[in-house]
Design a protein around this nucleic acid. Sequence first.
RNA 1: GUGGCCAUAGCUCAGUUGGUUAGAGCGUCGGAUUGUGGUUCCGAAGGUCGGGGGUUCGAGACCCCUUGGUCACCCCA
Length: 451
Amino acid sequence: MMKPSIPKGTRDFLPEQSLKRAYIFDTIKATFIKYGFQPIETPAMENLQVLTGKYGEEGDKLLFKVLNNGDFLSKADSSALESKDSIALIPSISKRGLRYDLTVPFARFVVMNRNDIQLPFKRYQIQPVWRADRPQKGRYQEFYQCDADVVGSESLLYEAELVQIYDEVFSALGIEVTISINNRKVLSGIAEVAGIQDKFMDMTIAIDKLDKIGIEGVRNEMAAKGIEKEAIDTVVSILDAGDDIDKISEILTSSETGMKGVDEIKHAVNFANITNELTTKVQFDPTLARGLDYYTGCILEVKANHVQMGSIGGGGRYDDLTGAFGMDGIPGVGISFGAERIYDVMEELGLFPKELSQNKLAIFLSNDIESLSTAFEWCTKLRRSGVHVDIYPEAAKMKKQFKYANDCGFTFALIIGESERKSGQVSVKNMTSGDQSQMSYDELLQLLTAC
RNA sequence: GUGGCCAUAGCUCAGUUGGUUAGAGCGUCGGAUUGUGGUUCCGAAGGUCGGGGGUUCGAGACCCCUUGGUCACCCCA
């Protein structure tokens, strides 16, 4: 007999966990719908060529590839096979891969279904994605993303809506968060002013780590990438301005791109706060970069306050995501919720409502085979009246049935035996208080309906 | 992909410089109680010590490999 196991980085969810997860998904989904986003679904598997090259070199390594069916070895690239060159071998033995995120499949979706959607197209999507990353705290190989994206418009109003969605969802879940905002154009501006446009990515990756490795760490990292000390000094002096966007604006005056970025941030934030009702602080953070290199405009990131946890949401604007699939000039902007991490944060802070796990109201217990039949009749009638009620499936020992009722967390045990059948009444025991009383069907219906 | 720590009953963990038949608590099952759980008492079952190889008269313990977990790095939700 084999020992059962599940692949690393994956998890089973017990009923209580599933209920909590559904609570998160439902909250997010309800908000997406309220803001006019429409649901779509895409396959768990995509053709590998749709996925490869979209997430950088690192991303390609983290893609799960699906082995071809049939006699795949006979069609394998024999020279790659002989030289044991795994990467070169892949295309000949795998034509499909598991979805790595929801954005790239969405881009593919937009291109393929362009005749059936209206631009601007607002879609939301809540589905699992897979990454062959090494698991660690808050990081799994299979996890859900909850994305909302709009394609087909450059309006900053959408950035504002997405900020409002973040604000609304996290308020509803009771999580105190900080929303950070930056703009890729501001980062370009910084590189421009420092004269290191050619080292833009290196600079970006370095300053993104500021809160982790400190200002000296950032200096070292940039120096290691061959950036001149003078340029480093310029970059650091800009970062010194911190969240003071006006100060950054002054420094970036000479960069047209940089100024545009500053302008976009201001507009988006003002729009988002148009009724002055945001619960969450939206903070400008010039060091926010985010990895995905397809972002071109505003970048958003959400972190929970008071908890040691990576970002629980992120997003941004991309000018041309569909270009890779032969459809140029379709801009978009989107956000993602990291449901798994939101779960962990809520668990850590005790934010889940208690009612989630207490949905078991009443269960019929019966003393003999004839009573079981009566109990099932009552049970069926109650269910048809909309009452949430269950029944123990056999006339087992009372001790066993009560233990089951207790262990499952039922509030009421409804006992039917010979005496109850004769009187036409059911014995109702409150499992919390231990009180027990007799009541008619109508009284029982009333009691359970009121709960 | 790189590195640190860990793996003993269903769960949480003991297990002495390597030495007889590997233990505890909780949980499970049975009984005390043939119509009453949650409390109490009594009893029982439950282990290829993650897997493979090695050192040794002897390995749960030491060494190597491997799988998984965990944490950090890279990257990321």
